[in-house]
Every structure is written in C-alpha cells, then in structure tokens.
Amino acid sequence: MATLTPVPVTLPKDKVPTKENVRDIIGTFLTKEWPYVDPETLTMSYNASFANAHCPVERPKPATGTHTETLKVFIKFHHDTLVDFEILKHLAPSKHEEALLSYEYGQSGLGAKVYGFFKTQDGTLGRIDEFLDARNMEPEDVENRVIRADVAKGLAMFHALKTSLEKKAVESYYEAVINGLKKYHKMGKLKALGKEGGVSVDNLVDYDFGTRLRKVVDKLESIRAKAGWCIHDVQFMNVLVKNDPKEGESRVTLIDFEFVMQNYRAIDIGGHFMQKMFKWFDEESRIARCRTYTEEEKRHFCEEYARQWNKLTGDSDTGDQVFLESEYGYMLAITFDIQGMLCFMSEEDDKDSLNLLALNKLFDEFVDQYAKLGLEDP
C-alpha cells in the first residue's frame, strides 16, 4: 500500500482539508464503508507543524450491524518545508521512500499499519495510517524503568530493521553537516537576530562546531562504533506511549521518519538522553522542567539496547560498549539540532526568545560533554 495513488480531491488554497476531502481520500483505500459515510458525521482535527500536518479522523459506529473497516485513521499531509534542508536532501528519504519505510515498519509489527500513500489533484502528498491509541511521550515517562526499556528495545529494533532503502555511507552525512555548520560559523546575521530577540547567541555562532564534530566522529571510528538506520529527530514527540498495550506488546512505538538514513546508532541513543531536557512545542519554555537522565538510567537503557541488538544481529555487544558510543552520540545529536535551528533562524529570521534560549542550552551541553570526554585541546 506504499504505492503512490492519485485521489480525486483538490485541497483548498490554505491546504486545510474539508470533511468531504478526508472522506474521499480515505474512501480511496478503505472502499467498503468509508466512501458512504456522511462527511458531516466525521470528527476530525487538523494540526499543522513545521513541515507536515496531522489529521486524526473518526467516523461514528454504524447504527446497525458491525463495522468491517476501522472507525478511526490518522492522515499525514506533507507540505513544502519552510526551510530548505538542502544539505541532507541527497541522503534523506523521499516522501515515497518514507511511506515505504513506514509500511515496512508497520508490517514488522513495530509501528502503525499504512493504509495508503496518496497524491491530491493539487499536488499534496500524504499518507493514511492506522490510528494508535497512544499519547506523545513526556520526559518523565523514561523515569519508569519499563517504558525506558521499551524505548531502548524499540530503537535497537529500528536500527537493525531490514528495509528496501538504499544504504548511503555514514561519512556522507558528516561531510554534509560539517559543511552546513561552517556556513553559519561567525555569521553576523545570526548574532543580530539573537540581539533582536533579547538572547545573545554570539558565543555559539563563534564556536567552531565543524572541527569539533570531526573529532567526535574520529573518536567513534576509533572505538568501532556500530551503524544502523537512524531516525535522527528523536525528540520525545516522536515516541508514542500506548494507552492500553496488549500483554507482551511494547508500550512504545516510533514515528516520523523524514530524516532516516544510515548513521552511528549512537546519534539516536545519545540523542534520546539529550532530548529529555527539551519540550520543543511547549509555549512557555522549550527546556523541560524535570531532572536529566541519570547515569544509572542511561546504563540500564544501554544494557536493554545491547540485549535486543544482539538478539537481532548475532553480535555480542555489551551495555558498556553501547554506553560509551552514546557518550559521543550525545554530541552528534546536538549538532543535528543546532544545524537545523540555525538553518531555520537564518532563512526565516527567527528570533523567538524561547528558541534562542534552547539553542544556548544545546550549546552549553555540547561544550560540557566535549570537555567531559577530554576532547578539548589543552
């Protein structure tokens, strides 16, 4: 069902679908009952985010008899991004490849089933997924040992996933990101935007991330860090916690695969630890009001990850090995976020003080971790 299917629908100019639009899109794939639903009886909400929009849709139960098709689905609409992530375009999956990956992930039993991948007559691409009875993960969730273990196992399974995506060299990613970071090094426009927003980012802009990131990558090479299919954008909004999991089923599932590509698995593991400190869609502060991951919790996570990884690959990795990789991966993940935020800032003239404060927090975390691991020149 990941084949691109044209649908006889034209979205309004503002791209916000009507109830009739979503009924007709869904009815193209779920053909027995959905095409005959009265659009006015549908319950739906439309939520636009940075590059995409999400639309859960529910129809009422039939007045008589039992239904054979699902009552609720999740539609994802792809819109043109506000920021051109040109540096990763040649590495990140196309929308069709992302849909195929999502389909394969769903077929494995790890994620939501994909019902269809579509293109409207106005050119909008989108996907219809199974609706999961779940909520977005909160930073405090990973203080629960069981949920933390499920996230660890979920990442290991994703990293080792067999997919039809083309594997591209890990080094290609770092060549692109380092070149991207160099573009923003000492950029006067970024400093000016910080001042306008009331938060100085001068120290961050003057910091040579590119050279230091190269040193981190060299260190990972020297310890023979393992690679796999990495998500990169592992913010907690991209992990769902199921409300009522079946017995023996994972409590979590991973979503949003726009940036899936080959990389050191450490970028996702270290990134998961780092992301506990942030709530990127909070209206009061992007920095979470909770404690950071403890070393004990990190080591438990890495033990669970190693156990699952070994089960899937036949390797004999230890929790200590995964933990060491994650310590360097922490910085890889920070540079992914900083690159994206500087790109957005530069192209959209963003000077939101909450974003600027979070950017400086990322910078402080990178500097502290770099010093902690003894990478700074004497």
Rank of each mutant, 00 (worst) to 15 (best):
L30S: 02
N52Q: 07
I255K: 08
I287Y: 06
D364Q: 12
A2M: 07
V170S: 12
L30Q: 01
S353N: 13
K153Q: 12
T68Y: 07
T68W: 09
A92I: 02
E20Y: 06
V322P: 01
E327S: 09
L91D: 06
E166V: 05
A112M: 07
H67S: 14
F118T: 01
L362F: 15
G123I: 00
L213W: 03
N238A: 02
E303N: 12
A266Q: 04
L125Q: 09
S326N: 07
T31P: 01
I269W: 09
T294F: 02
A149D: 10
K195Q: 15
S49Y: 13
E33V: 00
D350G: 08
E143Y: 13
A288K: 08
L204C: 03
T292E: 14
L190Y: 06
N310F: 09
N52I: 00
D320M: 04
L324K: 15
K242T: 01
R265T: 04
P378I: 09
V239W: 10
E97D: 11
D206S: 12
K311L: 06
E365S: 11
Y328F: 14
M261I: 00
L42K: 04
T18I: 05
V114K: 15
Y103V: 01
H54A: 10
E284A: 10
P56L: 13
Y293C: 05
Y173W: 10
R127T: 07
E166P: 01
E58K: 13
R307T: 08
Y115K: 08
T335K: 12
L332I: 01
K298W: 01
L88G: 07
V16D: 09
R145S: 14
F278E: 03
G319Q: 05
R291L: 05
V201D: 11
H79F: 14
H79K: 12
